[in-house]
């Protein structure tokens, strides 16, 4: 087992959390959706695994490189 931290590539705001901790994901599955400069930007699982932590809440402001979710794979 290893863990994968998922950083945000942009500064913005959390618009919608799609999956909760415990959810199984395949590579490419959207975990949450950010909003930045009027764009909705999905944050996708980089690999197959289980979501162990969502580190942000809907409405939170986030900055580039901030860890927003953790997967166990």
């Amino acid at each position: 087992m290893s863990t994968t931290e998922i950083p945000s590539e942009v500064t913005g705001r959390v618009w919608k959390i799609v999956l909760d901790p415990g959810a199984k994901v395949d590579e490419g599955d959207p975990i949450l959706i950010l909003e930045s400069m009027k764009m909705e930007i999905p944050v996708e699982a980089p690999c197959k695994g289980i979501v162990t932590e969502i580190c942000v809440a809907e409405g939170d402001a986030i900055v580039e490189d901030q860890i927003i979710a953790i997967l166990e794979n």
Binding site: E35, M37, G59
Partner: peptide, 12 residues
Amino acid sequence: SLCQSPEVSRAP
């Protein structure tokens, strides 16, 4: 043009 308010969209 830099407004980032979410209120112009519908909420999730």
